[in-house]
Design a protein around this nucleic acid. Structure first.
Lengths: 146, 146
DNA sequence: TCGGTTATGAGAATCATTGCCAATACCGTT
DNA sequence: AACGGTATTGGCAATGATTCTCATAACCGA
């Protein structure tokens, strides 16, 4: 199931950042790719891979600086989560269930995102803030909890 | 300048939650109201009010449970921030400067939010996720940094 | 004012995250 | 294939934000 993990792109980005694509980093990328949702550190550490915690943190920083993963601060009282960057897996939003806390990815249809883009242009004109990126979090109840 | 802080509404919500509106809690509400942007703990603690840290944390939890403040997890590597809840100060989005890290509020024009609402309805229909709320974070460069 | 309950504040305890460092793996060269 | 130099790893200690504890103080109704 991890066959289509974007290893080539990650390797390229790490190369640009003068970093190696080691086996630990490769494992992280596969775990994140297979999950298809932002994972917490313990989910990476307790999985079948059994990666040491300090290496996980260190490598996530490296991967983030290389532009391969994105960090999301904990949503509830929870802890930080990581995900493959949108440049690798495509633009998407997050569905956060306020009951069970689960976060799922929601791929964004082009017409929806186009609508958003025009909204963001209006913000720039109004406030002088140059918008380069956005994060949209939809909160509510997931299928199971509703 | 803190004259229009929504003390009455906060008191009402605390009452419903069987909680008192003490002077420490009142001070927190005024600080948050005056700031008009999400504040970190140290900004509440080091201000002229000199509130003890443990009381700040405890009271923010109480105020959050009563629906008077909202917690935002730190955006960079940063720490948690708190703000008066949207029910008290109105719906708004956040402008996050990726250079200086500052977060500003951005009030949402009704027509923009109406556009968003229709997008969210589409998500519900497509995924079975019941959207009750959303958070939009616009990232980019603030006026000073650009 | 009294009695009982709730909130406060100072410090200790907890826990995610980061730093440290000796051992290991990797890479280019011979 | 072995060598030397550099980057990475992994276990554990240190850090720092957040939470807990508990004795004291404030509050509220009778």
């Amino acid at each position: 199931m991890s066959s289509k993990a974007p290893h080539a792109e990650v390797a390229q980005r790490l190369g640009r950042a003068q970093q190696r694509y080691t086996s630990g980093r490769r494992t992280l990328v596969e775990l994140l790719h297979d999950a298809g949702r932002p994972l917490e550190i313990f989910e990476l550490a307790e999985g079948p891979a059994r990666l040491p915690v300090s290496s996980i943190y260190r490598n996530l920083v490296v991967l983030e600086q290389a532009g391969a993963v994105t960090r999301y601060p904990g949503t509830g009282g929870g802890h930080a989560r990581y995900e493959l960057s949108e440049e690798l897996v495509g633009h998407h939003h997050h569905l956060v269930c306020s009951r069970c806390g689960r976060i799922e990815d929601d791929p964004v249809p082009p017409e929806v995102d186009a609508g958003l883009q025009s909204l963001l242009g209006a913000v720039a004109a109004r406030t002088g803030f140059k918008v380069t990126d956005h994060r949209l979090e939809l909160r509510g109840l997931c299928k199971q909890c509703s």
